[in-house]
């Protein structure tokens, strides 16, 4: 569904990704793990159109999206949750979600999407009138995920959703990812927390210094001695 071929990207003259090829198939959870500075966020920004690749091609749903601006890529129904807290802090949860439906021109479509999202995240329905900035970190992360789902995406990209969350809350977020996947959603998860990310992934890629170092089914990588030693710390 999402296919990157030899993507080279970076900031100005500084090349960060030196030719990355990867595949995300419909209905999969694919994790990308790697240490700081390996190019995980650059990959995210390149797929979403915030950075234009210097070479290579990105295809989504059979069509080329290389070099399109973010709003066009989002119109093709890829949605994403960027790294770090990214809610609109002074707006209520409901307003945050409604803005998630920004690209829908039709009001009914927005309210239908809102109902669906509330069904998936009952906690947010109860909190809908609260100002997003007053929620806990985990709840805000859920607002961001729910907001991304307002687009009714074909694929969801998550950039380090576990960053800065308590272990218990991390479990809740990952359960949500699995739940979405069980309902037919395709997820690309970029995560530094290697063990957790590999546990829930169908397939995974290990990124290092801008290149794919290992790839394979999540469980296989998790069992791989080299990966364990380098990225999980055994």
């Amino acid at each position: 569904m999402l296919h990157l071929e030899n993507v080279v990207s970076g900031y100005g003259k500084i090349e960060i990704l030196h030719g990355v090829t990867l595949d995300v198939r419909t209905g999969e959870v694919v994790s990308i793990i790697g240490p700081n500075g390996s190019g995980k966020s650059t990959l995210f920004k390149t797929v979403m159109g915030f950075l234009t690749p210097a070479a290579g091609a990105i295809r989504f749903d059979g069509r080329e999206i290389t070099g399109l601006p973010p709003e066009e890529i989002i119109r093709r129904q890829i949605s994403c949750v960027p790294q770090g807290r990214c809610t609109f802090p002074h707006m209520t949860v409901k307003e945050n979600l409604e803005l998630g439906g920004y690209i829908h021109r039709n009001r009914q479509e927005v309210s239908r999407a809102l109902e669906e999202v509330f069904a998936q995240f009952p906690i947010l329905k109860e909190r809908r009138r609260a100002v997003a900035g007053s929620l806990s970190g985990g709840e805000q992360q859920m607002v961001e995920m729910a907001r991304a789902l307002m687009l009714r995406p074909k694929a969801l990209l998550l950039d380090e959703p576990l960053l800065g969350l308590a272990p218990k809350v991390r479990g809740v977020i990952l359960d949500k990812v699995l739940e979405l996947n069980a309902a037919g959603g395709t997820v690309l998860l970029i995560e530094q927390n290697a063990r957790r990310a590999l546990e829930i992934a169908h397939r995974a890629y290990v990124l290092e210094l801008g290149r794919i170092r290992f790839e394979g089914p999540g469980g296989e990588l998790l069992a791989d001695k080299k990966v364990r030693r380098l990225y999980i710390g055994e």
């Binding site: 973010p70 989002i74 994403c80 802090p89 002074h90 803005l99 690209i103 991304a148």
Partner: peptide, 10 residues
């Protein structure tokens, strides 16, 4: 409120 979040929503 958050320009990046806004861009991410299209």
């Amino acid at each position: 409120e958050d320009e990046v979040a806004s861009q991410v929503l299209g």
